[in-house]
Amino acid sequence: MTAALMLELRDLSKSFELHHQHGARLNVLRGLDLRLHAGECVVLSGASGAGKSTLLRVIYANYHPTFGAVHVRHDDRWIDLARATPHEVLDVRRRTLGYVSQFLRVIPRVPTLDIVAEPLLQSGVDAAAARVRAGDMLQRLNVPERLWQLPPGTFSGGEQQRVNIARGLIVPRPILLLDEPTASLDAGNRAVVAQLLQEARDAGSAVLGIFHDEDMRDRVATRLFPMQALEAA
């Protein structure tokens, strides 16, 4: 059985043009092709500066690709995010494409439980059910219940990261982009995240991620995608 193709990058390039640095141009990605299928977990590998995070951000449409296409399967039709309207991108992010970064962007004054429940609310789950599921998720990630009603601004790095993962994984999405979500977690919590990713893949999600920790990488990766820094142009 062949798993469904979920994401296809074709001839993707990304440069940054810095207008206020004498028009300096940074070439980060060039001519990149990648196919990602349902149920697999592809881990981007390569040294710092190879463009791994940039690639994830281009796929999430946080960065504009300079050239090439980002085809995403969205409700059984294909959308090229490089050419999609902002409203299309928002719809793809809401329902198809999840992104978990290393850092939690803190919203002042909002309690942890609500931060985690928010993506569920946006996908139409009612508030009470969303809170219950958010609590379950926080419990699994070992975030103590006494913290749930507090805003995460003052939490430790590891706690914030777990809140971020809970928020990022609470809505099952067909494609998940993970930028080192486990960087400051201990072994026990890394194992929880590995288990959550396994469950997502079993449910058919395709995962594309960056994991510097080798143990974590070996545990979750079905395939590596090696990347290299481009020569200075």
Binding site: F16, H19, H20, R57, A61, N62, H64, P86
Partner: peptide, 21 residues
């Protein structure tokens, strides 16, 4: 004009780059 995160994280226009930086 576009998605807020795109404009702030990958500004294209010189003026936006100046604002963000």
């Amino acid at each position: 004009t576009g998605l807020t995160d795109q404009i702030l994280d990958d500004p294209q226009h010189p003026y936006t780059q100046l604002l963000v930086s």
